[in-house]
Structure formats: C-alpha cells, structure tokens
C-alpha cells in the first residue's frame, strides 16, 4: 500500500519536473522561465522525495528524503529571488509583451 502510494507520488513528481523543464525552454524571457522552472521543479522534486520516504519508511533514506524536502523548500525560492533581482540589476529587459514594470520606475526615481 505504502509502496503504491510512493510510486504515485514519484510519477506525479516526474510529470511536474518535465513540465517545469519544458517551461524553461518555451517561455519567452528570464522572469517567466524562472517562475515556471522554480515552482514546478521544486514541487516535483519534493513530491519525488515524499514518494521515496513513503517507499522506504522510517530509516536512514527516508529521514534524509524528508530533510531534502526541508532544504529545497527553504532554499529554492531564495535562489530564484536572488537570480531575478540580479537579472533586473544587470539590465535584462522584460519581454516586449509585458504590461507594466513598477520596479524599473522606482529605480529611476531613486537615481
């Protein structure tokens, strides 16, 4: 029973991973790519880890899988935020279909 549930979680995680990487290739500019990739790949990998925990139960592998979930949820949004900010500061423009850029306006005011 736990094994079947684990396999279901792993397959769901693989599905989301695949869509995240497809988003990395398809979407037009870096900010959109960052959105798709960060959300889907983080959630997919966390789901894979939870599946591993369900299949293995409470032993060394299971505990470490839970720890990896904790690390990923804490670190991956921070890395995404740092990369988005760095991209904006280093001068990458938004996609030409973008509607609004309040950040650029504010930076212009400060200088």
């Amino acid at each position: 029973m736990a094994e079947t549930a684990g396999i279901v979680f792993i397959v769901m995680g693989l599905f989301f991973d695949l869509f995240g990487c497809l988003g990395l290739v398809r979407l037009p500019d870096i900010y959109n790519r960052l959105q798709a990739a960060t959300k889907c790949v983080t959630f997919g990998t966390c789901s894979i880890m939870f599946g591993v925990f369900l299949m293995k139960g409470f032993n060394a592998t299971g505990f470490k899988a839970l720890l990896i979930i904790l690390f990923l949820v804490l670190t991956s949004p921070v890395a995404a935020h740092a990369l988005a900010r760095a991209a904006h500061i280093s001068g990458v423009k938004l996609w030409r279909g973008s509607v609004i850029d309040r950040y650029e306006e504010d930076k212009g005011k400060k200088e």
């Binding site: 869509f19 398809r26 979407l27 900010y31 959109n32 798709a36 938004l94 973008s98 609004i100």
Partner: peptide, 12 residues
C-alpha cells in the same frame, strides 16, 4: 506551458 499560444501577460 502546454498551451500552443502561451497566453501570458507578464509584468512587475
């Protein structure tokens, strides 16, 4: 991502 036209309206 799977939609053929990618219907996005991004902005900050």
């Amino acid at each position: 991502v799977a939609h053929p036209k990618v219907p996005i309206r991004p902005g900050i």
